[in-house]
Amino acid sequence: MTVDVVLVAHGTRNPRGLATVAELAAGLTGRLGPVRTAFVDVLGPNPREVLAEATAPAVVVPAFLASGYHVRTDLPARIAESGRRDVAVTRALGPDPVLAAVMRARLVEAGWRPGDTVVMAAAGSSDPAARRDLVRAANLLAARLGPQGSPVHLGFVATGRPTVAELVDRLRRPRRRVYIASYLLAPGVFADRLADAGADGVAAPLGAHPDLVALLGRRVVEARARRLSSTSRDSQNRR
């Protein structure tokens, strides 16, 4: 059964952020076939517009690191507005052990060593479910770093306290280095702010890492399998 795949991101006018979303879509296309892209904010097309043009059942893949407002409220509303009832939605991109592994790799690239203090920088959210997701993501990173690299301290760039800069200032000690793990999907305004937080090093955002693309691909395959199973049951029930 043919299934249209729609990758949904937040939206940004930052060229580097848009390039990352394009790289994610290209990576998925290489694994799954054509992928459409939609945005829930800032620019279009939005999910409603893309789904209205779809010619087959669709799988929507939210490229969000936590299940906040956009994933739990905004995206379902746009899907409902499309009038489509044949849409499956994968869960949010994070938290996931794969993302923790990518964050660790980015930290190593930035110069982090076991024993260095780590602040995980997230955009933040006022949504309690999203905050719980971020805490879980920090715990997954701590487990990935090992006992010498934990605990991981969670800080926020946009919404919530403590801020990343506050944490870095609090945790800095003589002979103790502090590194920032960027729990951000793409370069942009939030990632740029981390350079001024006073840390000894700042890891790059997750970006279109091959393991992240593979994770998105697995989510689509699982959703397709559920769709096939559901279609098969419906067909049998009508007999």
Score class of each variant (00 low, 15 high):
A80G: 13
A80W: 03
E81T: 05
S82A: 13
G83F: 01
R84K: 10
A88R: 15
A88Y: 09
A88S: 15
A92D: 00
L93S: 08
G94F: 04
G94W: 05
P95K: 00
D96Q: 06
P97Y: 06
V98F: 01
V98K: 04
L99E: 03
L99C: 08
A100S: 01
A101E: 13
V102F: 05
V102D: 02
R104G: 07
A105N: 03
L107A: 02
V108G: 09
E109K: 10
E109I: 07
E109P: 09
G111L: 08
G111R: 04
R113I: 05
P114N: 00
D116Q: 05
D116L: 06
T117E: 06
V118N: 05
M120D: 00
A121T: 03
A121E: 06
P128C: 02
R131E: 12
R131L: 14
R132V: 07
D133T: 10
L134G: 12
L134S: 10
L134H: 14
V135F: 12
N139A: 14
N139S: 15
L140R: 11
L140N: 06
A142K: 03
A143M: 11
A143W: 11
R144P: 10
G146N: 08
G149I: 07
P151L: 05
H153K: 10
L154A: 06
G155T: 03
G155R: 00
A158L: 11
T159N: 07
T159L: 14
R161N: 13
P162K: 02
P162V: 03
V164M: 00
E166A: 12
E166P: 01
L167S: 02
D169K: 12
R170E: 15
L171R: 01
R173K: 12
P174C: 01
R175Q: 13
V178L: 03
V178N: 08
A181I: 00
S182C: 04
S182N: 04
Y183W: 14
Y183C: 08
Y183R: 07
L184R: 06
L184F: 11
G188I: 06
G188F: 01
V189K: 13
V189W: 14
F190P: 05
A191S: 15
R193P: 08
R193G: 06
R193C: 07
